[in-house]
Amino acid sequence: MFKKFTKEDVHSRSNIKSSVQRGLKTKFVSQFEKLEPVIDDIIPKKSQAILIKCEDRIQLYSIDEEVVLFQHFDDLIPTLKVVHKYPDCFPRVQVDRGAIKFVLSGANIMCPGLTSAGAKLPEENLPVDTYVTVYAEGKENALAIGKLLMSTDDIKSINKNIGVELVHYLGDGLWNLTE
């Protein structure tokens, strides 16, 4: 989504109302339930969030000059900076080492990269359309965020085609966006 993303894709910036900000927080928590204890650290109560509207109906929410989460249609997705800070709050999958290079150039993740020896999938089933953080074999931090195109059970059993659609990764336009 952010493979080609520059300042020119930003259309407008505006402060959001605090009531909207509250709604945003509850919605974010409802999507990632483990966030509940830390949501006030990610989006402090008194802070002023800025809504940045961009091309292709992407909306970024930034707090203190740093983009914290973004919205595409109805889904709220954290940025990698937030994921790095609170790694345990998001569902995670792991790819093998051979896939890192391709993920970092923005490729969607194919199933074999998620099921091979170096890769890891969560024990329990994650349904289709879940947003997952992508980790890599032998690495500590997340390198991408993606959306499941198949449930993880399907990934394990079918093991073909694209499993995760990449949304945001290290070194993409959003990562490099500075204000």
Partner: peptide, 26 residues
């Protein structure tokens, strides 16, 4: 409820990645 503290991540000053990913950078 126990407080979860943010994890400090050190970023590379050249390519802005966490340093473990530098080897895949340019």
């Amino acid at each position: 409820m126990s407080e979860i503290l943010p994890k400090e991540v050190f970023y590379c000053g050249v390519c802005t990645f966490p340093p473990e990913y530098c080897e895949f950078g340019l």
